[in-house]
């Protein structure tokens, strides 16, 4: 276990939070998308995070039971909540009653998600910088 592995752990945290931010951007950009390759309107996408553990091969023998290795994206799922119905008979995608199916995106949820992701990203950056400071300090051993 080294300080460099701590930096790797923080890096994994950073990329996962960035992915979450990308999904928020994707969701907000598609807030009015009524056509997709599949059926129906765009569906909200959510990242599912999972704790990453070291594999048997590189598990650290010095620490009895710490085998943490940061975080990973388990999968990206689609939110299956019902689409929002908007009455707009002129719309080309309107059904026979005149309703258009709009994506199941709640802007408030997305904004909250982006704030959480941004804060978590910042926390990981802070840890990364602190670890870097420790590693650089360790390089001064023997110079004093």
């Amino acid at each position: 276990m080294s300080l460099l592995s701590a930096m790797d752990i923080s890096t994994r945290g950073l990329s996962c939070e960035r992915l979450r931010m990308e999904l928020v951007a994707q969701n907000i950009a598609n807030v009015d998308t009524t056509k997709t390759n599949g059926e129906g309107p765009y569906k909200r996408k959510v990242a599912v995070f999972k704790e990453a553990l070291q594999t048997e091969l590189n598990v650290n023998k010095n620490t009895d039971n710490f085998n943490g290795n940061g975080v990973e994206v388990f999968k990206i799922v689609e939110d299956n909540a019902d689409p929002i119905m908007v009455y707009d008979p002129e719309h080309p995608d309107a059904n026979q009653e005149g309703f258009v199916l709009k994506p199941n995106i709640n802007l408030a949820n997305e904004i909250i998600d982006s704030i959480t992701a941004s804060r978590a990203y910042g926390a990981n950056v802070t840890v990364l910088n602190a670890t870097k400071a420790l590693a650089l300090k360790a390089l001064t051993i023997g110079r004093g």
């Binding site: 701590a6 923080s10 996962c16 975080v71 420790l134």
Partner: peptide
Amino acid sequence: STARQNIIAHNISNVNTP
């Protein structure tokens, strides 16, 4: 101390893992 730094990094990177 190094191990603790790893553990803190791990905990913080999982701050949003249900």
